[in-house]
Structure formats: C-alpha cells, structure tokens
Design a protein around this nucleic acid. Structure first.
Lengths: 216, 216
DNA sequence: ACGGACATCGGCCGATCGGCTGATGTCGCC
DNA sequence: GGCGACATCAGCCGATCGGCCGATGTCCGT
C-alpha cells in the first residue's frame, strides 16, 4: 500500500483522532493541502483509533486526549502494548494538561498544542514520523520538572494526613486547627504534595491519591 | 460491676475516644466532676476504642471522628456489627463535618460539637444512654436535607463528565471550553453534584466519586 | 396539561485557594 | 560539619471557587 515511489519521497500517512468533527476537518484540510502528507482516516475516540490504526497502519497518529468513549491515554497504551508501528503525536487543546506525563509515559512520541502555528504542526509530524520527540515549549518545561520527580515520590506522613483531610472536604483553615498547625503550614504541605503527585489543585491531588492507592 | 445502688441512680459509664490527650483530659475532668457519670477509660483511636469497649462495656462512648490509626466511623461500624451494648455519641471538633452521615449511618446515637456548653454535653450523654438521638442544631439541619437525598442519587451524564474533568485538575473555565458550555453551567452542574454526593467542594466530590466507584 | 429532572445561562460577592519568596529549626546521613 | 528531607511559619496577591438569586428550554412520564 504505502508505495514509496509517488511524490519523490513517500508521503507521511496520518490518522486523526479527535472527538470534535470540526477539529478533525480542520486538521484533515490542513494536511491534505500540504505536500508530503496523506490522511488515511479519522476516529472520534480512543477505542476506534486503536482498531483503525490496526487497519490503516498509518505512520503518525494525531491524537487528542480527553475524549468521551475511549480516552487518548488508554489508546496510546494499547497501541504501545500491541507493538503498533505508528508514532503517536498528542495534539491537545489547552496547555496545562494534567495528562502530559501519562501520555508520554504511555508511549506518545510528541506533545503539541492545537493552537501551534501550521509550520510547527508539519515539522512536528515529520519529526514524529522519524521517531524524534517533539514537545511544545510549555510541555517541555513541565517535563523537565517532572523528570526530576519520577512520579511516585512517596508522600511524607504529614502530607498524607493533610491530603486525607482534603479528601473529606476540609478547608485549609480547618485542617490547620485539626492538626494543631498554622494555615501557612498546611499550604506548604499542599504545595509539596502537589509537586510530588504532579497536580495543581486539591481535586486532582485527591484523584491522583486514589489512583495510587494512597487513599481509599 | 455496674451496680445500681450507688448514687441513688446508677451512674452512666463512659469511654472517651479522642486522639488529642488534651481533649481526653478535658472531657474526663468534666464528667468526673459531675454527678451521675463515671469515666471507665480512654482510647486514642478507633481500633483501641473497639477493644476497650469490649473490655469495659460502657453505657456511652464519646467518640471523635478523624483520628490517626483507626477512624471513628469504622469503629462505630465495628461496634454496631458486633452488637455492642454501648451507645456511641459522636463529639466532633468543628461543625460542617462531611462524616456526619457516615457516622449516623454506621450507628451513632448522636452527634454533638465539642464547643457545646457543658450542660448540653451532659444532657446529650444522658439522652444517648437512654437510646435517644441527640443532634446539635447544625447537624440536625444537615440531616434533614440529607434524608431528602438518600445518599446514592445517581449523577447525570453531564455531571459525570464535569466531575471527571474536575478530577484531572481542570478549572471551571477549562471545563466550560472543553464541553462547549459556559462557566456558569459548569458551576451549576457542580452545585448539583455536590448536593447529590453530600459534599461541599470539588476535592471531596472527587473522593466521594472514587469511593462510590464513579471514578477510577 | 402539568410537574419534575435535566441542561443551559447570567450576575453578584465573599471566602478560599494556590503561587511566590523567604525564613527557622530538627533530624539523620555521609 | 555540612547537606538534604521534613516540618514549621509569615505575608502578599491575583485567580478561582462556591453560594445565592433567578431564568429559559427540553424531554419524559402520568
């Protein structure tokens, strides 16, 4: 199928995965009107993406995260597990996505933002096709700090106590009184455990804690 | 042991359970200096409370919730399960405790605040000893609204979507963009699901969702 | 036809959170 | 004896949250 005797060099074949039809159309139009690319298909969620990837065998998969009916990270993990040839380039809508790390860990080759300039997208896809890592600046900076913290840094006793109270809906002030410490200290513990869990707020911290078995 | 021929009427025997020694001392002093009560023992957590209750067979157990090394609710549940004779009177530090319902459901006879006036505590203990329910006004009002909502009201699809994003650390504004709705609507969904889950903030909502299997 | 659950939106406002910067003291390790 | 992890605390400030009021429209069941 992917005969490499067409336009000088063989075009890079693509699979577009996004739950918004508008976005899919936009990406398809963008890549079809540019030389060197070929869009093989589209999928609205992770589950369909996996089966389509098996059927179409694209070079690169442009994948959104956060889709109803089959999350992107799970799809990436599945693709990696089954040894798919395709490189996955995550294309997310907004910057500070808490799934950056999970996606990369799951096997994504790159991570770009949808509002990146066209050229950056093209360059990114070509780089991904060659197996090179592509990261948007914002994501890159998040990564370095995350790499410094492997992911499962253990929480200290105090941090776990604070977190447990947070999970019960306790405010910082109440936590302070409960633990006989000042509110400032509570906030310090929170800041520290946010960093360790790789999150930015208490709700996500609680979720991360449950998923790591720290709570529940 | 509990001979009923002492001070006219038999004194009400107590077991005090709290992780703070200061609080235990305070309660012990208060009840020992009042006629009609007898403090049999103290425990710093729920686990020890259960074994002490079996050994001492008190009439009433004054129980704090939220203790390191054995939560109060679990202890109450265990006491109920084993058919302990003692009535459990929950004595919590601050008002809006998210454990009100779990504690009552687990079998607590009453729920008072520590800053209640002495007389109210005495009255409460006597009432509890007779098996009557004692609730502080704040707790009572929470209960009525909770009774109206049995506890496992199912979340609507939209509410689940919002909640899932909250668990990822997404802000209301981001959720709005993600779901193509306004921030006001996001807040409405949140308010509704808070009510259904019996919580007051997003962190507790995430925790409740995990414990009910809605997330993770 | 009416009520009830759901989804959508608006505005107001006080309370709370989270980030930032910086500081002190303890403890254990090398 | 210094270095790192932990725990404690302070102030500042913008961003966000959550509560409160009310409103519209849909769909469904009776």
């Amino acid at each position: 199928m992917t005969d490499h005797a067409a336009t000088g060099a063989a075009p890079i074949t693509l699979l577009i995965v996004d739950d918004h039809p508008v976005v899919r159309d936009g990406l398809r139009g963008m890549f079809e009107s540019a030389p060197g690319f070929r869009v093989l298909g589209e999928a609205p969620n992770g589950v369909e993406a996996v089966s389509l990837a098996a059927a179409l065998d694209p070079d690169v998969i442009l994948m959104d995260l956060r889709m109803p009916g089959g999350g992107g990270v799970d799809a990436i993990r599945e693709l990696t597990r089954t040894g798919a040839r395709a490189k996955v380039l995550v294309l997310t809508t907004y910057d500070t996505d808490s799934d950056t790390l999970p996606a990369i860990e799951a096997g994504a080759t790159g991570y770009l933002l949808k509002d990146a300039p066209r050229d950056e997208l093209f360059t990114g896809v070509r780089a991904a096709a060659e197996g090179r890592t592509v990261l948007s600046p914002a994501v890159a900076s998040r990564l370095v700090s995350a790499v410094r913290a492997p992911g499962n840094e253990p929480l200290s006793t105090r941090e776990r106590e604070v977190l447990a109270l947070v999970a019960r809906g306790t405010s910082n002030r109440e936590i302070a009184r409960e633990l006989f410490i000042s509110e400032a200290t509570v906030k310090t513990h929170l800041t520290h455990l946010y960093a360790k869990l790789g999150v930015n707020d208490r709700a996500a911290a609680v979720a991360a804690a449950y998923q790591r078995g720290i709570l529940g």
